[in-house]
């Protein structure tokens, strides 16, 4: 964080990310809030770039903007009652309290932890390093995650399968 450029970039990106995230909750229109969510995701991707984690940054765009945001849009469009408005519901107050609690915990943890600054000068090729770690040290968690995702996919297919679809593909 010695580089002034990186510092300026950090603050701009942080402002975009946090501002857009606030907007997601505050904006009335659901599609607007998805768009803001995309902006927030993009800001996070930018933050990864300032940390020279290029692989993670690109994956952030690919997965969060390319897939997660699209899924949310799908969910909104496919839900008949969602309509176009993000209205204040009766859950407004409990949600606010909950959010404040989570934020408080995170702020406490952030200030309480003694962050160790990495000695290394960053990776030459983050993708290779991640690949090595995933298939080496963290092979088991990686496989468990895969199995979990697979079962989720199968479950989703079972859920939406039309009744009486046992016979044949039609």
């Amino acid at each position: 964080m010695e580089d002034t450029g990186a510092v300026v970039a950090f603050w701009i990106l942080a402002a975009i990310t946090v501002g857009a995230a606030l907007g997601v909750a505050a904006v009335r229109n659901l599609i607007h809030s998805v768009v803001l969510l995309i902006v927030s995701f993009a800001g996070v991707a930018g933050l990864y770039i300032t940390l020279s984690a290029d692989f993670i940054a690109v994956v952030q765009i690919l997965i969060y903007i390319g897939a997660i945001a699209i899924l949310i849009i799908f969910a909104i469009v496919l839900t008949p009652r969602a309509g176009r408005l993000n209205q204040e519901g009766f859950m407004f107050l409990p949600a606010l309290v909950l959010a404040a609690l989570v934020a408080g915990t995170m702020i406490f943890v952030a200030f309480d932890t003694s962050w160790a600054i990495s000695e290394r000068e960053g990776f030459e090729d983050t993708a290779t390093a991640i690949g090595d770690l995933l298939l080496g040290k963290y092979a088991l968690p990686f496989e468990i995650a895969s199995v979990l995702l697979l079962s989720a996919i199968i479950g989703a297919i079972l859920l939406v399968r039309p009744e009486g679809a046992e016979e044949g593909p039609e």
């Binding site: 496919l78 008949p80 859920l159 039309p162 009744e163």
Partner: peptide, 8 residues
Amino acid sequence: MTLKSEPF
């Protein structure tokens, strides 16, 4: 479970 949809 069947998905309900509105005519359009």
